[in-house]
Amino acid sequence: MRTEKNGATLLVTDLPTLTSDNSRAFKDFVRGALAPEHLTVEVDLRNTRSVDSNGLGALISIHKTICVRGGRVRLLHPSPLIEEMFHILQLDQIFEIIPRPL
């Protein structure tokens, strides 16, 4: 898990999974990296194999944190399965999802 800071954006990368065994660590890690100037958190999911409901809970927690300051969470290039899961759970309404390039 790594973060890159680019102006008002915090980018999170190297996330092989986002599941019950690392969701808490992910949440703490991102919150720890957030600076006052950050208004967007981008989570790069291009190499993420699996996300479960605990991982979703962590993303929602980050979403609530950033919303307080008028920011947003953007999910980059999730796999079709993960994208389908967000759709099933209607979470595509609260996260901005950037699809994986064809």
């Binding site: 409901s53 979703l56 962590a58 929602i60 927690s61 979403h63 209607q90 309404q93």
Partner: peptide, 9 residues
């Protein structure tokens, strides 16, 4: 609710 962190499993 959309902002609930649990209950989707």
């Amino acid at each position: 609710e959309p902002d609930s962190e649990n209950g989707r499993g």
